[in-house]
Design a protein around this nucleic acid. Sequence first.
DNA 1: ACGAAAGCCTACTGTTTTGCTATGTAAATT
DNA 2: AATTTACATAGCAAAACAGTAGGCTTTCGT
Lengths: 133, 133
Amino acid sequence: MRITSKSNYALKLLVDIAEHRESGFVPLADIAERQSISKKYLEQIVPMLIKGGLLRANRGNRGGYMLDVSPDKCSIGDILRATEGCVLSFTIDPDDVFQFVWKDVQRDVEKCVDRITLQDIIQNKNGCYDYCI
Amino acid sequence: MRITSKSNYALKLLVDIAEHRESGFVPLADIAERQSISKKYLEQIVPMLIKGGLLRANRGNRGGYMLDVSPDKCSIGDILRATEGCVLSFTIDPDDVFQFVWKDVQRDVEKCVDRITLQDIIQNKNGCYDYCI
DNA sequence: ACGAAAGCCTACTGTTTTGCTATGTAAATT
DNA sequence: AATTTACATAGCAAAACAGTAGGCTTTCGT
């Protein structure tokens, strides 16, 4: 299993927006600079987060992005589902004898990542691990 | 995150060997045929499992493989660590601000997969999910 | 109405990983 | 010595990853 950089970028972006949510819509250029991520690459990630219901956009001058959920309702699982399609995938024949094993792993992992929210992360930037099993 | 077919093959191989462990060393050719997996591909997977301490080999006539741990001491986590290098990897800068998040996810996921053993899988082939969270 | 500032869309590219196949070598048992 | 097994290494097509690049569209402020 592997976490891609895309998911980490999405996390950075969402936390950045969450932390600047009083100032209205946050432009991507600002995020890209603050987080030192290629703006062009972020532009590809952002539509996934919108489709996933996590972000809302406003175009034009003074536009940008805004959270579409409260930080305590946005989990790592939500981010992964948005950026990677699903939390845990496998290329295994649907009627393989051991499919049930990986399905179970999938379910368990999903529970893990759905337990950690943006809120937790913002509050525990120093790493309190309160949300862990 | 993604489970590769290699891990599923390793699982099949280990379960097969576990189920035939009364008859001594199990030759790879038999496993390959029973599980309909390319023997040549299995030959690449098997050294990883040996290095991981899960398997023991005997060469020559009447040779083959044998479990080097009891089925209740061999977890899905052990298999993943052997075949994929680790349970959950990420290509994220070691001093990234959010490393701790993925480290925590890693730790949680590890707990999930270390809870499921070969024994469980052999006994619950019908999918009882007793070992799940 | 206009221009700048923002987001949106799509194509291309180098690199790495995956999922094998192929060929040959070494060891142990009979 | 012959056979049966495991061991080692190389190669290769397809997919996924991690971006880069260029141009188009919408909206706000003046």
